[in-house]
Design a protein around this nucleic acid. Structure first.
Lengths: 330, 330
DNA sequence: CTGAAAGCGCTTACAG
DNA sequence: CTGAAAGCGCTTACAG
C-alpha cells in the first residue's frame, strides 16, 4: 500500500531493457523502431506494475503542461451550456490535451487557476478583463482565446445575437409592435445583458418596431411590478427577457398586478431552462444547442496550442424558439 | 516578450548570491538565518524580474503537489452552496495549499482531474463510487475525504438531515398530519433524494405523523398532475419537496389541476433559490447557510494532508425556514 | 533495434 | 550567515 510510486525505471529494470526504450514505447515516440515484441512486453509490464507517468516530471522536461484551461464566464451558465464543454473535452482529449474548466471565484481572493496549472492555452467563454490579462501575462501565458487584441464586443458574437434576434422575431410574428427588454440587476450578468440589449435593439430596428425600452428587474423587490405598470401604460405589449429567470420575474409581477399574460403582456425568455416549462403560465423561450460550439472552441484552442489550421469563424449555434403559454394563448 | 522564463538561478546570478539563498528566502524556509538585508534584496529582485516559481519543478522535487481537489457532487449544487467553496479556498490558501474544484463530466469520457493534478487530498462533497475510488487508488491517491472505509450513509450526515427535518416541522406546526415527499426523477439527484426521503420519514415519525408517501415528479410530463391528484384523494395536505424546482413542479401541477395552494395542498421546497421567491404563488423553502461548512471541509482536508488536529465532527449548518405563500395564506 | 546520458527548475540536507 | 551539490522522474538528441 504505502510503497513509493512506480517509475519508468522500475518498468525498465523489471524487464531488463533501458529506460529509453520504455520511454519510447510509452510515449509512442514517432520515428522509432521498437520491435513489436518489446513494445508489448513494455506495455504489459507497465500495466502489471500499475505504472503511471509522473505529470510534474513530464511537464518539467517537456517545458509545457498539455493543459488547456477553459474559463467559465462570470455569469452563471445555463445548464445546457455545459454540454459544449463535454464536447470540447472530448475533442481535446483526442489531441492529447487535457481540458480543465475554471469557474472564477468572485468573492474569494484565492489565486486564479492559471497560476497553478501553467496551461498552454487559456480559453475564455467571454472576454477577459485587464486585471486578468495582466495576471496571465505575469505567468508567462501568451496563448489566449479570444485574442485580447482583436476581440469583437460581445454584442457582435453571432452566438450572442442569435437568441435575441429570434425572440424579437417571435414577438413580431405575433403582431407586437412595441416591445421592451427586461434584464437582471445581478451585476454578474451585466456584460451579457448589455450585449443582448444591443442585439434586441438591432433586431427591433430591422423589423421596424418602436424603440425598445430597457429595464432591469430584481425578483427580490418590486422593481418587476413598477416596470410592468410603466410598460403597460406606455403601450408595450411584448417583452424580450434576458433569460428565463428574468422572464419569470416579469410574468410573476404582471400576474400579481392583475394583468393577463399573454393577453396584456407577452413575455419570452431565453435558455429554455426547466423553470420556463414549470412556471404557471409556462414561459416561451429560446433553446440554444451548443454542441457545435464546443468543437469550435476546442479547435480554436488547438490552433493556439500547436498551430493546427484555424476553424472557420463565426459559427452559428443551433437556435430555436420554444413557444409556450406566455406568448401564445392555448 | 518571447524570452524564456525567469528562474531562481536568474535571480541569484543577478544579485551575486547563491541559488540556495534565493530558495531559502522565497520559500520562507524555517530555521534559516538570512540577513534582513539579503532577504529584501532577493525579494525585490525576484519581483523586478517577474520571477514565478515553476510549479512542475517544485512539485517534482517536493514529491507532492500542494493541491487539494474538491469534487463537486453529481447533483447540481444550489447557487448558495458555492459560498462554502469560497470559504474553504481561503482557509486552504492560508495553509499554503491550493483548492481546485472539479465538476465531474458525466457524459464525457475525459479523464478525471485527479489523474491530472496529483492532488494530495481529494475531498468529496458526497460519497465516491467504487469506480472512482479505484481510479484514485490507481493514481496513488490515498488521502480521501470522507474516508471511504468509514463513510456513514448520506442520510445520516447532519447537514443533509437538517433541511428535511425543518420542512416537516414547519408543516407539522401548521397542523398538517398527512404529508408526502416529492422528489425529482432526474437520476443525478437520486442519492440525495434518497437521503432526504429518509430524513423526512424519520422526522415525520418523530412528530407522529401518518406514513409518508413518496413520488418522483418530472416537470416535462404529467407526473406532477397524476401525483397531486393521487395525494389529494389520499388525504395528503402537505408536501415536502426535494428542492425548489420540485416544489415548483408540484405547485404548478396542483394549480393547473384546479387545486388551491396552500388551501388544498401546502408545499415547502428546499434551498431558497431565486425561483422560490419568483414563483406565483411564492414558494416556502429552507435556507441553508454553509459558510461554516466550508471551513469544516477545509479543516478535514488539512488534517489528511499534513496531520493537523481534526476539527470537531458533525457540524450543523445554519438552517432556517423561509415561509412564503405556498404554505401560509397571506 | 536499443542504450548511456543530459538536463528541465526546484528544494534541502550538508558543510562550511 | 551563505554556498556547492544531489536528485525528484521524465523526454529525447545522440551514438551505437
Amino acid at each position: 500500500m504505502g510503497r513509493r510510486r512506480v517509475t519508468a525505471t522500475d518498468v525498465a529494470r523489471s524487464l531488463g531493457v533501458s529506460r529509453t526504450t520504455v520511454g519510447f514505447v510509452l510515449n509512442n515516440t514517432p520515428g522509432q523502431t521498437i520491435s513489436e515484441q518489446t513494445r508489448r512486453r513494455v506495455l504489459d509490464e507497465a500495466a502489471r506494475l500499475g505504472y503511471r507517468p509522473h505529470r510534474a516530471a513530464a511537464d518539467l522536461r517537456r517545458g509545457s503542461s498539455k493543459v488547456i484551461l477553459f474559463v467559465l464566464p462570470e455569469w452563471p451558465m445555463g445548464f445546457r451550456s455545459h454540454q459544449h464543454l463535454e464536447e470540447a473535452a472530448l475533442a481535446l482529449d483526442e489531441a492529447g490535451y487535457s481540458l480543465v474548466t475554471y469557474a472564477r471565484q468572485t468573492a474569494g481572493r484565492s489565486r486564479p487557476l492559471w497560476e497553478l496549472l501553467d496551461p498552454e492555452v487559456v480559453v475564455g467563454m467571454g472576454p477577459f478583463d485587464d486585471e486578468e490579462l495582466a495576471s496571465m501575462r505575469a505567468c508567462g501565458i501568451t496563448k489566449i482565446v479570444p485574442d485580447p487584441e482583436h476581440t469583437p464586443p460581445l454584442a457582435e458574437w453571432p452566438t450572442i445575437t442569435q437568441g435575441p434576434t429570434l425572440q424579437v422575431a417571435h414577438l413580431h410574428e405575433l403582431g407586437h409592435r412595441r416591445i421592451a427588454f427586461a434584464g437582471t440587476a445581478d451585476p454578474r450578468h451585466s456584460l451579457l445583458v448589455d450585449a443582448r440589449v444591443r442585439a434586441t435593439r438591432a433586431a427591433a430596428h430591422r423589423f421596424e418596431l418602436d424603440p425598445v425600452d430597457v429595464a432591469l428587474v430584481d425578483y427580490r423587490d418590486d422593481s418587476g411590478g413598477a416596470t410592468v405598470r410603466r410598460w403597460h401604460d406606455a403601450g408595450v405589449t411584448g417583452v424580450v427577457a434576458y433569460n428565463d429567470d428574468t422572464a419569470a420575474t416579469v410574468v410573476g409581477a404582471a400576474i400579481r398586478d392583475g394583468m393577463s399574460v399573454p393577453g396584456d403582456l407577452a413575455v419570452i425568455g431565453h435558455d429554455d431552462s426547466p423553470l420556463a416549462a414549470m412556471f404557471v403560465p409556462a414561459i416561451s423561450s429560446v433553446r440554444i444547442d451548443t454542441v457545435e460550439l464546443g468543437r469550435h472552441f476546442a479547435a480554436l484552442a488547438l490552433h493556439e496550442a500547436d498551430g493546427r489550421p484555424l476553424p472557420p469563424r463565426n459559427v452559428e449555434a443551433d437556435v430555436a424558439v420554444v413557444p409556450r403559454e406566455s406568448t401564445q394563448d392555448r
